[in-house]
Nucleic acid binder design. Structure first.
Lengths: 341, 341
DNA sequence: ACCGGATGTGAGCACGTGTACATATACGGA
DNA sequence: TCCGTATATGTACACGTGCTCACATCCGGT
């Protein structure tokens, strides 16, 4: 009866996980033998190993990966700062990245939400000894990742070039991509260009805008209209409503596909414009939606499979040699010519 | 020179993370004092605490969350079996869930990819002492989660009712939802119904189909045509191409929005059908895309915010009382009347 | 002067695991 | 018989942290 007090007063604690000691006791072997039964290259009588594995199965024992990683070995945990999974490109990107990590035995701790929440989450999650921290694009200030360096957690930026010597970076050549889009429109004889950009605090925004302006300047032109939106469909829709009020506009480049689809949606409602007869619209990223026949959007591909496999390579490289300098990998964008230009 | 061998032969090990002992030594205090400096309710001279916190900041020390959780306290790690983030509904759902977990200080280990990969990943990730495992819908066999019970890791199924007494389940009333759709179409005077379902191994599929057939039977009708697709836009497109070959079809219900959008896309290409004049199309889920003016899809809302907040509640409840019986929570779907019915 | 409580402090254990170390046995060859 | 090597096994330590326990100090009130 004395024990009842302990059992009840604690509002019913969660039952303890079965440990190697429990298995050792149940199988009447030493705890070290249990450990060896699960190790690859350890001397252990095969009959004893079978007994231990069977006992472990019966009790439901699994070596605790956390305790095992205390010795300084890799934890298998990787952080991903995922941006906003409500955005189509981010969702597709993170999906591919998560699958890739899973396939190579890494377990991603995903952070998502507002920048403020994410910044706070990053601080908290750095309390775990992560093998790496992968940052997807975005607007979270680079300063938020400074702590990671002190903790010897390698940081891999994707869609942003920052702190080059300290961290690895992998990024699409945004300038080239924007230039491809402008040139494709110039080839169609377009002369009056509009541009819908993303939020100014996004690292890619400045580069895409530079690409636009350089390409136009070289053609002896300049932007006729420009709007800043929020990378969403709805944002693209209202921005385009402003720009397309001017019927002379015959080319509209958008800094991502979601906004381009919004612009396309708006253009279809405006009798003064016909896509692609009198108006070209080109987006950026090549999200799956862009290929839907209802949109058939011409866009600049920001290739996910290639980027993800480079990230996986960088994670491995960093883990096998932590002293190497940060690498900067630039990915070449590519024009995907469809029906809107 | 003797030390050089160690340093070089190991192909440059990753530098050790700064520990409480390191801080203690640097600040000339005991290790216990460092621990106390980071604890809430501990007696510690405030000047000494300041010194320790400052030293910790300088050295880049953060308490190791893994080591701290060894004592059997909660780890803060939660598994999410995410399905396929390429699917719009899953992406939106997981995004909301991840944000919610982050906001309450939980860190989701996300698993995604093919069913085979996910099944394998689940086994591996159960090596970590997770606080909970959240399973989003899908086709991963329930058997894959049996180990979790043995490990005392609570499982929360969303979009599937399974092992009711052992695990918590939260699911939309799929039958009711399908019924709402059929009734809305009947109200429009539709009489010839087609149905595009999802893969048979999805738990929700049978329920939605049952709802369809019951509602039709009560109206003295039966399905005129039926196709099984894969929950994707493209799958919906080709399935609709089969069904709509018959011009008499005047109502098409699809088991999710992606397929409904595909069907809508097909219908627009077929001169024999006009949506909504001669053909109603209704989807299921209410993904953000459905509200885009280009589609304006009538659908059945499978509410994400409500579902996610219930999941968060269940996680907390389970953690504070691990002995409670599994709960089954049914969410009421709702007709979102837009322009396609 | 004395005492009880509040505050401050360090030693040391426990958490669960992998493995270095020491020791023991078996075996084959000289 | 002896020795070197491969196999087998238990003891004990290390990993980094939180917390208990025992002890020291201080302060206000009787």
């Amino acid at each position: 009866m004395a024990q009842d007090k302990d059992a009840d007063s604690q509002t019913a604690r969660r039952p303890r996980r079965v440990t190697a000691s429990d298995v050792a006791e149940a199988a009447a072997v030493s705890r070290a033998a249990v450990s060896r039964a699960f190790a690859k290259n350890a001397y252990l009588d095969s009959a004893k190993r079978d007994l231990i594995l069977e006992t472990a199965r019966r009790l439901g024992y699994r070596p605790n990966a956390l305790a095992a990683s205390l010795h300084g070995t890799e934890t298998g945990l990787v952080g991903i700062v995922a941006g906003d999974l409500g955005r189509e490109y981010d969702a597709a990107f993170v999906g591919a990245l998560v699958s890739g990590l899973n396939a190579s035995g890494k377990w991603p701790l995903v952070l998502s939400g507002s920048d403020a929440l994410t910044t706070q989450s990053i601080r908290a999650v750095l309390g775990y000894p992560l093998d790496a921290l992968i940052v997807r694009g975005g607007s979270v200030p680079t300063a938020a990742f400074r702590d990671a360096a002190q903790l010897h957690i390698p940081v891999i930026f994707s869609g942003r070039v920052a702190e080059a010597p300290l961290a690895d970076c992998i990024c699409c050549r945004n300038e080239d991509g924007a230039r491809l889009a402008i040139e494709a429109m110039l080839d169609r004889g377009r002369r009056s260009f509009g541009y819908i950009g993303g939020p100014a605090d996004w690292s890619s925004e400045a580069e895409r805008q530079t690409g636009v302006q350089d390409a136009l300047r070289e053609a002896g032109l300049a932007l006729c209209a420009q709007q800043q939106a929020d990378y969403t469909f709805e944002g693209g829709r209202s921005a385009a409503r402003q720009i397309l009020r001017d019927d002379r506009i015959d080319a509209l480049f958008c800094a991502n596909d979601a906004m381009a689809l919004g612009a396309l949606s708006t253009a279809r409602e405006m009798p003064g414009h016909q896509v692609p007869e009198t108006l070209s619209i080109i987006g950026f990223d090549d999200i799956p939606l862009a290929a839907w026949p209802d949109f058939n959007l011409t866009t600049i591909r920001n290739p996910i499979p290639e980027t993800v496999s480079q990230i996986l390579r960088l994670v491995e490289a960093r883990l096998s040699d932590p002293t190497r300098d940060g690498e900067v990998i630039m990915i070449a964008p590519e024009l995907v010519a469809r029906g809107t230009h």
